[in-house]
Computed example of a mutant assay.
Amino acid sequence: MFRHALPLALPLSLSLLLVACGNSEPVHQAARPAMVVQPEPAADAVDTFPGEVRARYEPELAFRIGGKVSRRLVDIGARVKKDQPLAELDPQDVRLQLEASRAQVAAAEANLKLVQAERDRYRTLLDRQMISHSQYDTVENQYRAGAARVKQIKAEFNVASNQAAYSVLRASLDGVIASRRAEVGQVVAAGQTIFTLAADGDREVLISLPEHAIDRFKVGQEVAVELWSLPDQRFPARIRELSPAADPQSRTFAARVAFDEGKVPAELGQSARVFIRNNASVPLSVPLSALTAEAGQPYVWVVDPKDSTLKRRLVRVGPYGEDRVPVLEGLKPDDWVVAAGVQVLREGQQVRPVDRANRSVKMLAKE
């Protein structure tokens, strides 16, 4: 009898157990802690451009006459003083021109003496009324022409003398030779650059600006410069010069940045970074860990301050940074965004907002 009753008692006991469980209250799950942050000013509000420290004055030195380079007296990196000889041309041709001019001066002076003596004789004859005034005027005009010829030849001699001095290229300022573009034996033309001199004095940073954003930059705009040798220090500066035309190869605009401070430990050729505030960018950004995407559409989880529930917020982002991403559309400065674990969250989920130190965050409900 008990063997037949046992199969009937077991289902009955299970049914009573299920009924008892069904009558109990459901178990309440605690709100999951979620680290939240508010959007901060975007790091991309500041554009960064690599640059090179250059001298403010960089004259290109060239011979004022053409010829063959016979001597080169300095090399790249050499420190030079003003009027120091840098290179020389073969002086043979200019010396011959100088000798020819000197001979022409001597001939013109001898001719002037001759016509002057002739004029003096004719003046004596005119005083004695032995010749006519027309005859005297002819001799007087010959004397004036001889005197003018002497002035002309002397001027040509001075030019030849100067050209003889131009065969030596000298430094125009104290500084350092930054580049060399000619060698011994090379025939150069007048005005062809031989050396580029980095003059002593103020230092600047040369940068290249992209053509698609050139309208955002102007002369006098305030910037900051960071030297690679001093990575934790930024020096105030401003754009001093902006090229009006783009480089034909790189399609960028050259700009020179001058330091506001007089004494900056910047040496020629040093690498530097120039920081320029981008006033056109949206000044909001969130950590990369706060961003996720679905079907190629990025979004973030925003906490509703009324009941601490999550809402998906679609956003439009800019170029990704190292640890943050600028948000161009979709967020407000007073929004609270989940900054970690966004892949396991769901719409409408209730959370307990905490900060990075695991302290509860009190949110003010929006009216």
Rank of each mutant, 00 (worst) to 15 (best):
Q350H: 09
A87T: 06
A165F: 05
K332Q: 13
D83M: 10
D47E: 09
A117F: 14
A255M: 08
N158T: 08
A182L: 03
R216E: 09
S271Q: 15
R313Q: 14
V27C: 04
V354K: 04
K263A: 11
R251C: 07
A357E: 12
A9L: 13
Q92Y: 12
S161N: 12
D335C: 03
K82N: 11
A20M: 06
D215K: 08
Q186G: 00
L89E: 02
S179N: 11
G348T: 06
V325G: 07
A340M: 04
V150F: 10
T309Q: 06
L17T: 03
L112P: 00
P26M: 05
F235P: 07
S101Y: 01
S360I: 10
A357R: 13
E88F: 05
F253V: 07
S161Y: 10
I207V: 12
L345T: 07
N358I: 03
G146H: 11
R3E: 09
G341K: 08
A103W: 06
Q104W: 07
S289A: 14
K113C: 00
S208G: 12
V139N: 02
R251H: 11
M1I: 02
R144F: 05
P319D: 06
D334V: 10
D93G: 03
R181G: 01
A20Y: 14
D215M: 04
Q97T: 01
N141C: 00
R121S: 13
V264F: 07
F63W: 01
L268T: 11
L169A: 05
L86M: 08
R251E: 08
R102V: 01
P210D: 03
L126D: 06
A100W: 05
E329W: 13
S243P: 00
E211I: 02
S134P: 00
A55V: 01
L6P: 01
Q233F: 05
Q270H: 13
G201K: 05
L14C: 12
Q221R: 14
M35E: 12
S15H: 01
P7M: 06
Q142L: 13
N162R: 15
Q142E: 13
E156F: 01
P41K: 04
H28L: 09
L242V: 09
P33A: 11
A55M: 03
P287L: 09
S132C: 06
V315E: 00
R277T: 11
L314P: 03
P33G: 07
V80G: 05
D47I: 03
A34Q: 09
S243D: 06
A145N: 13
V188W: 08
L242Y: 12
L230Y: 15
D127V: 02
A148Q: 12
Q97F: 03
Q92V: 14
E226F: 07
R240H: 06
V80D: 08
N162M: 14
I153Q: 15
K82R: 15
K154E: 15
V338H: 01
T196L: 08
G191Y: 04
S229Q: 15
V36M: 04
D93C: 00
L242I: 02
K366N: 07
D75N: 15
V344C: 00
E99N: 07
L126N: 09
R95P: 00
R216P: 00
E52A: 10
R95D: 04
A147W: 12
A254H: 04
L10A: 11
S24Y: 10
I76G: 09
A107R: 13
E183T: 04
S24E: 14
E156H: 08
K332Y: 04
S289E: 05
F259Q: 02
I214W: 02
S13T: 11
P33Q: 13
P91D: 09
R95V: 04
G66W: 05
L331D: 07
